[in-house]
């Protein structure tokens, strides 16, 4: 409860992060894994959006993520701007076993790049890799990138070791790692394959985002006394696409009363 009030007391930097992606790709599960290191097999769909916070240590600095987990169904789309306005980071999630979910992810990226805070850091996450894991790691990805991630991150969740055990066929996989990686590179996104179930890749996303966030920028704008952590992009950047409410209010009131 005192969260908001005490926000300024510690030296942590607040970062507003939004999760977007098709319904049931595992957005809420990714957040749950990150925030409380849990996994629930049947998670209720998100209605509107859910809000969670989690701290993330990065070198000498502590980031406090304010995470907005949005609803995935297409018809909730028009609500999304309400949540991604002022966001400094976004995780766009797709499901590696569902090709269409990558298409949806691409359209989210496009929308974010056009409508959201111009400095927004976007990560693409191919979730549910546990369903397609094979002995050969993730479909012949460059092992170097994987080990790099692990090296960077001391706080990686335990039990994460990619299951090298099974020689499972990859019949379930519909999105080749390379394809998504190539797209991410081209669009300038961070890219991870993750599993909310096993925990693989989850912490990495958030630490990599933390590294890429222009923290000084945020600090400067917060100190400016705007009261909002999202001062960088400001209202003008994010709120324009807002279907919802607030914006026209003052104007309309004038002529209605």
């Amino acid at each position: 409860m005192a969260d908001a009030a005490s926000g300024s007391v510690d030296r942590s930097v607040q970062v507003k992060l939004v999760l977007l992606g098709e319904a049931a790709v595992g957005k809420s599960s990714v957040v749950l894994r990150f925030v409380s290191n849990e996994f629930q097999a049947n998670k209720e769909p998100t209605i509107g959006a859910a809000f969670l916070t989690q701290k993330c240590r990065l070198e000498d600095r502590v980031l406090r993520y304010e995470i907005w987990d949005t609803a995935g169904q297409e018809r909730f789309h028009s609500l999304a701007p309400m949540y991604y306005r002022n966001a400094q980071a976004a995780v766009v999630v797709y499901d590696v076993t569902k090709a269409t979910s990558l298409e949806k992810a691409k359209s989210w990226v496009k929308e974010l790049q056009r409508q959201a805070n111009p400095n927004i850091v976007i990560a693409l996450a191919g979730n549910k890799v546990d369903l397609v894991q094979t002995s050969a790691m993730s479909s012949g990805s460059t092992p170097s990138s994987e080990s790099e991630d692990e090296a960077d991150d001391a706080t990686a969740t335990p039990g994460e070791s990619p299951s090298v055990s099974g020689g499972e066929p990859e019949s379930l996989r519909q999105v080749p790692r390379e394809e998504a990686q190539a797209y991410a590179t081209e669009a300038g996104l961070l890219f991870f394959e993750t599993s909310a179930k096993s925990g693989e890749g989850i912490v990495e996303i958030f630490t990599e985002i933390a590294k890429k966030i222009p923290i000084e920028h945020i600090l400067a704008s917060t100190r400016g006394g705007a009261g909002r952590s999202g001062g960088a992009g400001g209202r003008a950047g994010g709120a324009r696409e807002d279907v919802n409410l607030e914006e026209q209010q003052s104007k309309k009131d004038g002529c209605n009363c």
């Binding site: 969260d3 908001a4 009030a5 926000g7 809000f51 916070t53 304010e66 909002r228 952590s229």
Partner: peptide, 8 residues
């Protein structure tokens, strides 16, 4: 002070 505080 912000949306998050409201939701909490």
């Amino acid at each position: 002070q912000d949306d998050g505080g409201f939701l909490n």
